[in-house]
């Protein structure tokens, strides 16, 4: 069953085409990677699927059209989105943030935080500017692990992260997948596609090739 299907998704901003007739589908339980250079339109695609950007064409979630649904309604249906640079929040504790869309107990949250490489005591820390960009991303990954949604869109979870941590992030994504989440992974690093079942190469707002991650990586290298 297709959990996500895009049909001719296009988006223009100030007369410029950002997304051009994008069509692909993801089966339930798969990990797909969208690979492309900076400015290819990958993040816009992710934001359009979540409903943050208004796009033309059809977006179907579990074969039901969601193109006109708000961000909130898409989230309520089981879609989650991790921003490339998640924002910080003054006065909101990490455990409170995680509990917004998860029924996990405080003990479970502490264990999840350790799993993503943060100390358990961070559950009581505020999600404010005192966290580094990398820590903030880990909190977001912990939140997604706790929520266990049907579809997760990850916008460059690897950007600004060291190699050791990238391996941990890959493990976390695989665990999310094992727990039942389908994953759409946006990245500009070929190494990230190794965990994907299928990859798509994006150039100038278009998906120019789709296939096995190794093949897509080769094509991407050829473009550099």
């Amino acid at each position: 069953m297709h959990i996500l299907r895009l049909v001719d998704v296009s988006l223009e901003k100030e007369g410029r085409s950002i997304l051009r007739n994008i069509s692909f589908s993801i089966n339930k339980g798969e990990i797909h990677a969208v690979l492309g250079a900076n400015g290819a339109g990958k993040s816009t695609l992710a934001r359009a699927i979540m409903g943050i950007e208004k796009a033309n064409g059809k977006i179907l979630f579990k074969e039901r059209e969601i193109s006109n649904l708000s961000i909130t309604k898409r989230a309520k249906q089981g879609i989650r989105f991790m921003q490339q640079s998640p924002p910080s929040f003054e006065g909101i504790k990490i455990r409170e943030y995680i509990k917004i869309d998860s029924a996990k107990s405080i003990e479970e949250i502490r264990k999840i935080l350790e799993k993503v490489g943060l100390p358990a005591k961070y559950s009581e820390r505020f999600l404010d500017d005192s966290l580094s960009g990398g820590e903030r991303k880990r909190v977001e990954l912990a939140s997604l692990l706790a929520a266990n949604p049907e579809l997760i869109i990850l916008d460059e979870p690897d950007s600004g992260i060291d190699m050791v941590s990238i391996n941990r992030i890959k493990k976390i994504i695989l665990e999310m997948n094992k727990n039942g989440s389908t994953i759409l992974l946006i990245t500009h690093k070929e190494s990230m596609t190794s965990i994907a079942d299928k990859a798509h190469l994006m150039v100038n707002g278009k998906i120019v090739a789709s296939g096995a991650p190794k093949e897509i990586n080769k094509l991407f290298k050829g473009l550099k």
Binding site: M50, I71, T72, A75, K76, R80, Q83, P87, I100, D101
Partner: peptide, 16 residues
């Protein structure tokens, strides 16, 4: 309110 913060929380199922 900061748009990015709103989007982040709405992506967790909260209304605006």
């Amino acid at each position: 309110v900061n748009r990015k913060q709103l989007e982040s929380l709405m992506s967790k199922g909260l209304t605006e």
